[in-house]
């Protein structure tokens, strides 16, 4: 269960989040939609703990523990996962090395037994198969030379391996064609579980055709200005964000 209360955050002294409240129950999928500059990506970075984003007020609790004081890697170990809008290319670090290092770091922090090379390979192969990722991709450097679709599938693969309690998907649909979108969405849907919550951040309703949300929120000017069921996404698709940006202004 995620509880974000009165979250204020700024970058270089500019306040971007202005008192955001959001509660996501176990196993629920919530979507956040909103116009450019509303603070959608800021929210995802603040939750993941990126440098340069300063939290000035409020809290974000994951199963009752405030994660905002934690280092980024501690948040990951606590069960937070951010699927990046723009996954970073890391030349020279092979996918298998990366996955093994990440998984074992998280397992160690969670007091679980670390996996040996064979155990990891087995797990990786089965997850890759589920997501339609070729073994060849695992031999390459992290995200280097990956197509847009491959990068996003890779994010889902990492999510599948790290088994988070709470996953934030930051504009996962950006840069994807319909086929790639469906594969990625299927991957996410396969990970839906009773003890796992999702926050899907998106501009467009399109992604929500594939990943059905329980609730939809509109984020404008750093606050949640409207919440509703899946129908709200359809309504936004028709009307646009004009009324919210006007309100905010």
């Amino acid at each position: 269960m995620i509880e974000i209360k009165n979250l204020h955050a700024e970058i270089d002294g500019n306040e971007i989040l202005k008192g955001l409240d959001l509660t996501i129950g176990d196993g629920e999928v919530h979507a956040i939609m909103g116009p450019n500059g509303a603070g959608k990506s800021t929210l995802s970075y603040v939750l993941a703990g990126r440098d340069g984003y300063e939290v000035t007020d409020g809290s974000a609790e994951l199963d009752g523990v405030d994660i905002l004081e934690m280092e980024p890697d501690e948040r990951a170990a606590a069960g937070l996962f951010l699927a990046f809008q723009y996954p970073v290319e890391i030349p020279g670090v092979q996918m298998t090395t990366f996955l093994k290092t990440a998984l074992n770091a998280v397992r160690k922090a969670r007091d679980e037994e670390e996996l040996d090379a064979i155990g990891l390979l087995k797990l990786m192969k089965s997850k890759c198969k589920e997501l339609g990722i070729s073994d060849d991709m695992m031999k390459r450097a992290v995200n280097v030379g990956f197509s847009g679709g491959e990068k996003k599938r890779n994010e889902v693969l990492q999510m599948a391996m790290l088994e988070p309690k709470f996953a934030v998907l930051d504009e996962t649909d950006s840069g994807l064609d319909i086929d790639a979108l469906r594969i990625v969405a299927d991957g996410v849907n396969a990970l839906r579980a009773q003890n796992r919550s999702f926050l899907v951040i998106t501009h467009y309703q399109r992604l929500l055709d594939y990943i059905k949300p329980d609730k939809v929120h509109v984020l404008a000017d750093g606050e949640i200005v409207k919440s509703g069921g899946p129908d709200l996404a359809l309504e936004l698709e028709k009307k646009g964000y004009a009324e919210f940006t006007k309100e905010a202004a």
Binding site: P72, R75, G92, A102
Partner: peptide, 26 residues
């Protein structure tokens, strides 16, 4: 590369280990 460092840390890799991984890659 700060972006790469954050990406690794967001996947649970502690800072020192993430830095070493990047230096090794370099």
């Amino acid at each position: 590369d700060e972006d790469a460092l954050f990406y690794l840390r967001a996947r649970g890799i502690p800072e020192k280990q993430a830095r070493n991984l990047l230096i090794q890659a370099f």
